[in-house]
Computed example of a mutant assay.
Amino acid sequence: MEFCPTCANLLRYELPNMGRPARFFCPTCPYVCYMESKVKIKRKQRLIKKEIEPIISKDDLKNGPTTEATCPSCNYGKAAFQQLQTRSADEPMTTFYCCLNESCGRQWRED
C-alpha cells in the first residue's frame, strides 16, 4: 500500500495503457507516481526470537510455601506454590505449583 505524500490518501493503481507505464495516482489531488519497469526486490531479514523469561523460576517456587496438592505427573502429595495476578484485577489469581518430589520436579498451574 502506498499513500499520497501531499494529502495522505491511499493511492490507486492503474495498469499500463497505450505506451504509458503503470502508475499510482491519488483520487483527490493531482499526484501521480509512475512505476519503473524493473522492480527492486527488498532483501528479507529473518526475525530473531527473543528468549522467553519465565514468570517464576524453579528456585523461587521450591523455596516458597508448601501445600497438599497432588502432582499430575507422579501423584506426589506435596507441592510448593506461588500465586500471581496474571490477568485483569477482576479475575482470580493464577496459582503456580512445583512438585516437591526430587525425581519429578514438574511445574503446573491452575487458573
Rank of each mutant, 00 (worst) to 15 (best):
L15C: 05
C7N: 10
P5H: 13
A8T: 11
R23C: 02
M18Y: 09
M35R: 12
S37A: 00
L11A: 08
Y31I: 03
F24H: 15
R23S: 14
C26V: 04
P21S: 10
R23I: 03
P30S: 13
G19Y: 10
R23V: 01
T28Y: 08
A22H: 07
E14L: 08
N9W: 09
A8Q: 15
A8P: 00
Y34L: 11
A8R: 13
L10N: 08
T6A: 11
P5S: 13
V32E: 06
F24W: 12
N9M: 11
L10S: 02
F25K: 11
P5W: 14
C29H: 10
T28A: 13
C26W: 08
F24N: 05
L15E: 15
T28Q: 15
R20T: 14
L10D: 04
A22G: 15
P27C: 14
V32P: 00
P30F: 04
N17C: 04
N17S: 10
C26P: 01
L10W: 02
Y31P: 01
N17F: 08
C7E: 09
Y13I: 00
C26F: 09
C33I: 00
P16E: 11
N17I: 01
E14G: 03
G19D: 07
N17E: 13
K38S: 01
P21V: 01
N9V: 10
P21L: 13
R12D: 06
K38M: 03
A8D: 04
A8Y: 12
E36F: 12
A22L: 13
T28L: 06
C29P: 00
P21Y: 07
T28M: 07
S37L: 06
P21H: 11
M18K: 13
P27F: 04
Y31Q: 00
E36K: 15
Y31H: 05
R20I: 11
K38L: 08
G19W: 11
T6V: 09
L11W: 06
L15R: 13
F24Q: 07
L15A: 05
L15K: 14
P16G: 10
M35A: 01
N9I: 06
V32D: 08
R12T: 08
N9L: 05
Y34W: 15
S37I: 02
L10V: 09
A22R: 10
C7G: 09
C33G: 01
L11T: 07
S37T: 00
P27Y: 09
R12V: 12
P27G: 02
E36V: 02
L11F: 09
F24E: 02
C29R: 08
R20V: 14
C29L: 04
C7H: 13
R20H: 12
S37H: 10
P5C: 09
C33A: 04
N9G: 02
K38D: 01
E36A: 12
P5E: 04
K38C: 02
Y34R: 06
F25A: 09
Y31W: 08
M35H: 02
P30H: 01
M18D: 15
L11R: 07
P30I: 05
N9R: 13
F24I: 05
Y13L: 12
C33M: 07
